[in-house]
Design a protein around this nucleic acid. Structure first.
Lengths: 205, 205
DNA sequence: TGTACATCAGTGAACGCGCGTTCACTGATGTAC
DNA sequence: TGTACATCAGTGAACGCGCGTTCACTGATGTAC
């Protein structure tokens, strides 16, 4: 049995990482298998030793964000470690809507980088994307405790984060690129800060 | 001068409409010029009598939503006509996040239908997309009067509308498809309903 | 009014390129003896 | 320990298809006389 199983697994992982970066930046159609393999230091032909099709790799690339150096790892690995879930959620919002993340979609979250691609893709890709939504919801729900409406607030925050980034990334007006994210950020932080037990309707009339 | 200028203009308009429907549903790459021309009742070859390239048509298709039977026309053409800009804005939110719009992206707004496509497209397409953002902002700003923070609130509402739809369209979980939009809708309506003169921070602490 | 003509919107075949996928191969590695 | 071997990860040429674009053409229409 030449080449260890780990060798193959590591190669596969390199391909997935290369794919995620390229897909996030350029989209499914615009990236060729050649480019992906080159990004992993390999050549075209070997691809089908690891994946059945480009579409299958796409789903794997979207899913890979859960376990790679995403926000969670990054925020969670702060020193000293952050234990308070509300503080963690606030940092998450700040980071998600930051300039750095906007400018480097390849390194970051597929949720804002390729929604319209995925919406036309097959079931596995959409399932992977849904998994990412759930992870993000989970972070905010934890921060909101078990208030009656914490699920609803978490969903609102996710919509704000993704909506703000998607719009900022698409427009070419520098002012809007900034202010759309700033507005989303303020509202998201407000939703996190509001007293845990109060329903939003109590304030919103 | 055979064929009137209006004849050519009408044909061009048919091509743009066909393109917008197909692009919204399937994305830039997935739609061929053949399909677009067939959708307009024409054949491939004539395309270049009207447009210089597929990319140029794309920008025209995105821009066309401003002047076609979009939300504005639809809401504004209610009988009796709606004069109150706040009521109009509320209807806009309801309509934007509705099931009907989610299920028929070809008929509706490019903002939620093809953000990641446009974010990788050329300047004309991004300019057209930015124009749509501005129209939508305008509707909400009008509803919010000249409160100090009405621009910021309008931007938050647009993020919520687009974010909620983008996520709903991409996930394949029926529960999330409903609840993400419901949550966005509630928050957007809350932002519209809040007293015009009160800053959000007064409530959000 | 009727007819010949010029224009150009629209047709459909053809070109050329890129890319996903296949395939015969090569050569690095672990194993059996 | 050393050597022959089997395996299979990785290579790169080739295939085939689809699509954006071009081009020579056709024929419907408005105009000049």
């Amino acid at each position: 049995m030449p080449y260890s199983a780990e060798h193959k697994a590591r190669t596969r992982e390199r391909i997935v990482q290369s794919a995620r970066h390229l897909f996030n930046r350029l989209g499914f159609e615009q990236v060729s298998i050649d480019q992906i393999m080159a990004g992993a230091g390999l050549t075209r032909g070997g691809f089908y030793n690891h994946f059945e099709s480009k579409e299958q790799l796409y789903a794997a690339a979207v899913a890979s964000y859960e376990t790679c150096n995403g926000f969670l790892d990054r925020v969670a690995s702060a020193d000293p470690p952050i234990r308070d879930p509300r503080k963690l959620a606030r940092m998450m919002v700040d980071l998600y809507l930051s300039d750095e993340v906007l400018e480097n979609p390849d390194l970051h979250c597929p949720l804002y980088a390729l929604p319209s691609d995925v919406s036309r893709a097959g079931a596995p890709s959409r399932r992977a994307y849904t998994g990412l939504i759930r992870s993000m919801l989970h972070i905010f729900r934890s921060a909101l405790g078990n208030a009656r409406d914490s699920e609803q607030r978490a969903q609102t925050i996710v919509s704000l984060c993704v909506g703000g980034m998607v719009l900022a990334r698409t427009t070419n007006d520098p002012g809007l690129r900034k202010s759309l994210r700033a507005a989303s950020r303020l509202q998201a932080l407000a939703l996190l800060a509001r007293d845990r037990s109060s329903a939003p309707s109590s304030c919103d009339r």
